[in-house]
Nucleic acid binder design. Sequence first.
DNA 1: CCGGATCCGGTTAGATACTG
DNA 2: CAGTATCTAACCGGATCCGG
Lengths: 232, 232
Amino acid sequence: MTNESYRQFCPVAMAAEVLCTRWTVIVLRELIAGSTRFNELRRGVPRMSPALLSKRLGELEQAGIVKRSRIPGPPEIEAYCLTQAGRDLQPVVEAIGMWGQKWVETEPSLENLDPELLMWDMRRNLNTDPVPRRRTVIEFIYPELPESQRKWWLIVEPDRTVDLCHIDPGFDVDLYATVDLRTMTEIWMGLRSVANAVDREALVLVGPRALIDTMQSWLGLSPFAAQDKLAG
Amino acid sequence: MTNESYRQFCPVAMAAEVLCTRWTVIVLRELIAGSTRFNELRRGVPRMSPALLSKRLGELEQAGIVKRSRIPGPPEIEAYCLTQAGRDLQPVVEAIGMWGQKWVETEPSLENLDPELLMWDMRRNLNTDPVPRRRTVIEFIYPELPESQRKWWLIVEPDRTVDLCHIDPGFDVDLYATVDLRTMTEIWMGLRSVANAVDREALVLVGPRALIDTMQSWLGLSPFAAQDKLAG
DNA sequence: CCGGATCCGGTTAGATACTG
DNA sequence: CAGTATCTAACCGGATCCGG
């Protein structure tokens, strides 16, 4: 069931036994970002098999990092929540991410683009403060992608909740953003600014001036975008 | 040769591909602590096979974390040194260790005691400032261990270098410390003080008063000993 | 839909021995 | 000193299937 121990009394080894198994820190990133349900977590780690995710969640529960609770139904739903020990892992995950942003060459990772992951992250981090206090709809169009992944809608409701759809919700669209996936991912990662992408015509915005001019501020970036890159 | 990618553009995933494979952070801990040669690293990870250590060092070199350099001989010797990217991993390893010290139950790890690891760590962290400015020899005796691991000598030379022997160097001994391995490990990890162990007669010190009274200060503790424990 | 369990083939890690 | 070689056991990825 569990991994063989390193058999060292050093705290680094003790922690690494739990944390440094395949996929574990990625799952922790999702939990820290706020995901709580099994299939919600799956969206954040689409290439991880559900069997392995289930196993890892069990190990994290065993280690006191995650607590499983049953939300009364129907449908009866399981929620995975971080304990205090789990929330205390945020500095660890952040340190790993900061190092990755600073030192890992981007080129290889920019070959692994995923519009669903990107849009999901954008939804999570969108800053609603600069957005008008009525329902605002932004449509992203990735012309080079197949039909099923081409169009995405971000919807900011008057109550400041943000929804993401990949089928047309039928609302009037305030802002259209036509862009290639790589450019949008680079913007999200802080490797390029909105203005730069517009200048190079890699990003075409159609909509009210106010929404366009504030895009860099309402488009929440990756939590690691502020870290300068030294590699790649 | 290398691990399969997570295929995510997130910096956490990019970093985890390199860092979160088995044994990798333990090897990094050794490199950060100052080990540079292959067999020196092996002493810090005695349960890791040399084949895997060699493979990991190759991966770390590939990732730009370690640089291999040849020290002219004979004997010709290879040295593994951290690059700037490698030194930048210190906050990551420290964050992992701090979390481990705070949240991982100690009991299981205290079943995996190792006198050589412990003495090696003590040698590395010994604070020579409070030690007299002549050669000082401290003999540790673990009565419950087999002959080959029972006696260890820490030698502080006048030039402030510290040596560790596990065969009698033949010098006059200034201080004898008779202790069981578990108690000494608990002291090293900050779970118990020298005074407490002496009071409970788990640690018996024979030698000059000055050396005994200052032991807590010259005995450098684990870098994580300052972090309070909340689990186990 | 939600939350997994099962099976199978390929890869990785552990143990031990050996070499230039 | 600094690694290879070899063999076996454990783990992982991918697909499929299942009960509520």
